[in-house]
Design a protein around this nucleic acid. Structure first.
Lengths: 163, 163
DNA sequence: CCCAGATATTTTAGATATAAAATATCATTC
DNA sequence: GAATGATATTTTATATCTAAAATATCTGGG
């Protein structure tokens, strides 16, 4: 369907606009397909190898980057999920001893969650495998293509954040 | 894995491999960020304007492309979700009169779901708005960038489907 | 100090998601 | 044609996820 590098004179403005419209939808669908495929593989692998889930891994991964811990709200922003969701997962991880959760004296509305030593050890093991899985999924791509894709998705991200 | 022609002299092989590894992870995270952002906007808009959800929209969208209908299994494949999930959503859409669901005489294990006239009208209205939303989200990108991104994500998709 | 609004989190209700077990049907082999 | 395994779907149990209401705390103007 009407592919590409047509800088030429064969299409008028209206045609080009319509083409771009369709391509926008297709780009969105392809984006969704790619992330769904990766997500599924990672979820399956996490379950099989560590008997855990992607949201829990993501939760621990966010905390691993910030040794001093994060508030529930900050975590909710970073994970791009609702606050209620973070509350639920945090409760489980606390019960499993992977994170600590304590109130802050200065502002008693906020709660800080932080990796426990056990949680850190567990995450480290997962992180190694996680990286291997992603590399095995995307490693066939050349570094040039990865960089180009990063650049273009960076533009997409900026565009999205403006709206 | 790790193909690619070296362009710069500044890094040895090992460094380049590690760089690519990190870039693979970053690409995956950026991919996830982009689709999450789009998904959230579409979900919110669908709820506000049509009081429905993304999975239901997706379900109807798949059926809209195939007037003769699809089996539950085929639908599960296309939507990239589990069969049980499709069963649940189908049940609701049947109850709402948006789709029909009937057994096939030749193979009584399979059920074919199909858009009802009401469902088709409802989907058409949503599809128009859905396209507008996606365009408003991605329309700032040049057609060249959209095409380039499509091409690269196409490669990603092929790579993923091989594994 | 008091109180209205803002902020941070949890709780609730309901939809969506998976995996795995259960059902039902087909298809093949003996 | 009965037994066996494959296929198609649903059911079940549980985990996520959202939106919205509820709770608790802070903040600033009067």
């Amino acid at each position: 369907m009407t592919s590409n590098k047509d800088t030429g004179a064969s299409s008028d403005l209206e045609t080009r606009l319509i083409e771009q419209d369709h391509h926008s939808i297709k780009l969105w669908l392809r984006l969704l397909t790619c992330s769904s495929l990766i997500e599924r593989k990672l979820r399956t692998a996490l379950r099989e190898e560590f008997d855990t889930t992607l949201p829990r891994f993501d939760f621990l991964a966010q905390l691993d980057r910030v040794p001093e811990g994060l508030s529930m709200g900050e975590l909710s922003n970073r994970m791009m999920v609702s606050g209620g969701n973070v509350s639920g997962i945090a409760g489980q991880l606390v019960k499993e001893g992977l994170i600590s959760r304590r109130a802050v004296p200065e502002n008693r509305r906020t709660f800080i969650v932080k990796l426990s030593p056990k949680g850190r050890r567990f995450f480290q093991k997962m992180a190694v495998r996680h990286e291997q899985w992603v590399i095995s999924l995307l490693g066939e791509l050349s570094m040039e293509d990865v960089n180009r894709a990063m650049g273009l998705l960076g533009k997409v991200k900026v565009t999205l954040e403006q709206n």
